[in-house]
Design a protein around this nucleic acid. Structure first.
Lengths: 348, 348
DNA sequence: TTGTACGCGTTATCAA
DNA sequence: TTGATAACGCGTACAA
């Protein structure tokens, strides 16, 4: 009976032990009752439940996590939050997590390598049960991911993935999708098709580039290096890349453009319009990702619709399955897409 | 020396104690070194840092949180994630939290009362240091919030706020903003101005309604009940409400519409166009929130720009200040807005 | 400057 | 069915 014990007693925060004392039972029984364990007398369980409600007892998950070495929490790392694609993905993640009783710690890397690394480290410190990552553009070194996996924290990549390092990957078939839009243009007679390519370091940039090339080869067309310009994933890059291309003499200009994603396409469209050229009559253009703005711009954009919500949901479900040992890591999950034909490709 | 201790040693997870053992010092010194406490020999600190890196030691924040009774984590509850407004708010929150060394647990209520309650409870179980909430539409009872605050968990409401219960509130001046757009229409000669009002249970719905009425009164116009129709916050509601209004005989129809927000305005616009009426010539319309689509629709929407990012940032900063005892709870923070004049109001 | 003992609130384990 | 004890891994307070 130390004095500190006495003085604290009055304002003591309610813990399982406090409830137990009120009821003249042990903390262990309180814990068992609240967790729905079978080995508790129904009568005892009812008394515990009533007391818990009466005193407003909320079990301390932190202590629980420490004892169980499980937090029922998933760490999420996205490169950006505002881009309309990610909020939908996050919604899918949240829904799946909620159903399974997991919570989300959300971080964003702002496309920055070191901030991503930092986020992953802190998330590990917080002992998340697993990680859901879409890589930042500047990431080139994958050893950090491997280390994390080696330490027993499973990773599921989505959208921007890193394959063959033991992590499950969820994405669309980027190569195939880009081949589809490119073929769509080829099928309508376009010959000089240009590509606004994405960053070389990001998986989807590389894959889409491949798809573009594959489509051309399949139609017996040579790949013209001068028609491939790096643009990044944003409007500005798309605009600048298109500007550059429009400096070419008229007969060398492309008659169509495959942009790595919709924002890049919007930028390119702006450049085309500023040059007083018409879409699709003078230059046709297609994008990828089905941004909300795609159907609203002056010449509605033909694009590939990515089911963002489904990607998030599938990724979270896969991660939880791995966490709970119901599934092995390293799977590749491909989510289905849809070609949205609008006016910008000139075939309507 | 129990046997379990021996057998576990080999695969033991690296803790401060493990690092300490390797170095022949105590766990406490490791802790001190890693937390940058002054009372550690520089030489010792360097050895600890090196060993930590070598063995890939990441301090266990869960244990730390338990000991400190602080998690450095903020719980966020938003009614929806996809609506373009909230992602920007979340980005602001994340940035402010990141700078201050806090993490975010993100939940969404899906506009559902009980799901929100559930989220708040679990968040409290996870012992977040504070809560950032934008209320769900169906919430009518505020006693849950009060209880949470009484238990010592500070709340900051943003956008959809609950005033006078001891929580800091961050929002735009909804009443004033709605008065401004309404006055803008009145100033350009519109007489029969209709309102697509929001849900009665949500603070911003009520405040905007008031602003609309105030502007009318100020111009000596009576409020016509038949021109006020509830629409909710979404396109569909805006559409249905407008449909209803267009059933009125032509001379009783409004010549302008003040929508509670942009999505509701889009819905209304759709209805107007389906009736082959022109915007703004036949019916002018203004919104509120500056959705990304506002400037892209056929008749670009005049609206109030809400600085979503700033709202999130201000809310997170205020919460952290309260958590760290640097500020008292209960403040009202008003974020500045901007009137974006486009074509839909007919004054360009 | 460094180490020891103990508490944070829960659960696993084993005994009753 | 229930209880006592010892972890989980860290930080505080005090002693050395």
């Amino acid at each position: 009976m130390s004095k500190s014990r006495n003085s604290a007693k009055a304002s003591r925060r309610i813990t399982a032990e406090v409830i137990a004392a009120k009821l003249g039972i042990s903390a262990m029984t309180v814990s068992r009752a609240l967790n729905g364990r079978p080995n508790v007398l129904k009568k005892t369980r009812d008394r515990v439940l009533a007391a818990a409600k009466k005193y407003g007892y909320t079990p301390n998950h932190i202590a629980r996590s420490l004892a169980l070495r499980r937090t029922e929490t998933i760490g999420v790392v996205v490169p950006e939050i505002s881009h309309s694609f990610f909020p939908e993905v996050i919604r899918g993640i949240e829904d799946a997590a909620y159903s399974a009783g997991y919570h989300l710690i959300l971080t964003h890397s702002a496309e920055d390598d070191s901030r991503e690394k930092d986020a992953i480290m802190t998330l590990q410190s917080k002992r998340v049960d697993g990680l859901l990552i879409s890589t930042a553009q500047t990431v080139t070194d994958h050893s950090g991911y491997k280390e994390t996996i080696a330490q027993g924290v499973p990773i599921v990549f989505f959208d921007r993935v890193v394959q063959n390092i033991g992590a499950t990957c969820v994405s669309i078939d980027d190569e195939e999708c880009c081949a589809i839009v490119t073929e769509h243009l080829l099928g309508h007679g376009y010959k000089a098709i240009s590509h606004r390519r994405g960053p070389r370091t990001v998986s989807i940039g590389k894959a889409r580039m491949k798809g573009y090339q594959r489509a051309l080869s399949r139609h017996g067309l040579a790949v013209r290096r001068d028609l491939i310009v790096q643009s990044g994933f944003h409007e500005k890059g798309g605009y600048l890349a298109m500007e550059k291309l429009l400096q070419l003499p008229a007969h060398e200009r492309p008659d169509a453009v495959v942009a790595v994603n919709d924002p890049a396409a919007f930028g390119a469209m702006k450049a085309i319009q500023e040059h007083r050229l018409r879409i699709p009559q003078d230059i046709a253009i297609v994008g990828m990702s089905d941004d909300v703005r795609a159907e609203l711009v002056v010449s509605p954009l033909t694009t590939i619709k990515q089911p963002a919500y489904e990607i998030g949901k599938a990724a979270a479900e896969a991660l939880i399955a791995v966490i709970e040992g119901k599934e092995d890591p390293g799977r590749k999950i491909i989510v289905q897409t849809e070609l949205m034909i609008r006016k910008s490709c000139g075939c309507l």
